[in-house]
Design a protein around this nucleic acid. Structure first.
Lengths: 152, 152
DNA sequence: TGTAAACCTTGTAGCAACTACAGCTTCAAG
DNA sequence: CTTGAAGCTGTAGTTGCTACAAGGTTTACA
């Protein structure tokens, strides 16, 4: 095995994949990235394969896939001969979740718009925003109820 | 001070505000709810005022306001004579965040739809989904880039 | 009055997915 | 050969809860 291409430091790797060294170490710790080879002094050195792998991870995370899903996607992409049914299943499942999130969020936007529009700028006593938050009855949409999922 | 109206247990309170006892204790710990009065045996007892306050908190959280924002909103609603400019500012700020989140999410949905639609169901080798995640160049929208914010 | 179920108590640890230190060592440029 | 940036490990913090364990209290019913 040649050492050629094992010349990228953790900082450089992070820069190329648009994240931070801490994140790289974190991914190594949880097993998304394999243990890196080291210099004599103990610093990590990477090759282009890891740049590609890390970029894949970051993009998938950007797309909103959970680390667990990324793990599965990585395992599958490591086996090019496999059927991609499972890949499709994960993506479709994710799409469903995104769609329902989208619905909730847009109901929420309408409610907030309504609140803000109706706030006359007077006293807190008669503030439309406080009222709507206090009394769910004043909501138009039923969608805006149902448990907050990290919207905040 | 009469003890009348201090007869609601933590479980009952939680039920009325649609959350769990653990959450109530948590809110007490972080100072969103004041320390409750206790029975001789040391159990918490509440009045209707707390039911209203907790409902307010839960609704605000449902609307996606952070605990920090809820804290500010509570402080303001405790002062009915104040101008509600700040309330409006918090809500408007929140609305902006919701709107940008919404845009990102809908770009994400399109990309996922495109991925899933183009996945022919063949081998992982030629899987459209894996390709798009691997290579951001294949994305249509620019919006789908920019750092994942708790999408899942 | 006894007892058993249902509820409550505190404290602690866990979740996701990082992020931010502190206190030290190593590397690379000049 | 020095200096300053970057890297190392390990641990704790973030947000907003949730989930125990190991006990104590309340309440309803017989």
């Amino acid at each position: 095995m040649s050492m050629r291409g094992q010349s990228i430091s953790i900082g450089e790797l992070a820069r190329r994949a648009d994240c931070k060294p801490e994140t790289v170490r974190y991914y190594e710790r949880i097993g998304l990235l394999r243990d890196a080879s080291r210099t004599d002094g103990g610093q990590r050195r990477y090759g282009d394969d890891t740049v590609r792998r890390l970029s894949f991870i970051r993009h998938a995370r950007d797309f909103g896939f959970s680390v667990a899903s990324v793990r599965e996607l990585l395992a599958m992409s490591d086996q090019p001969d496999m059927s991609c049914q499972e890949v499709d299943a994960i993506a479709t499942h994710h799409l469903k979740k995104v769609e329902s999130r989208l619905q909730r969020l847009s109901a929420l936007r309408e409610e907030l718009q309504r609140m803000v529009t109706h706030c006359a700028g007077g006293k807190v006593e008669s503030c439309r925003i406080i009222e709507v938050i206090s009394d769910h009855q004043l909501c138009i949409t039923e969608n805006s109820h149902g448990g907050a999922q990290d919207l905040g």
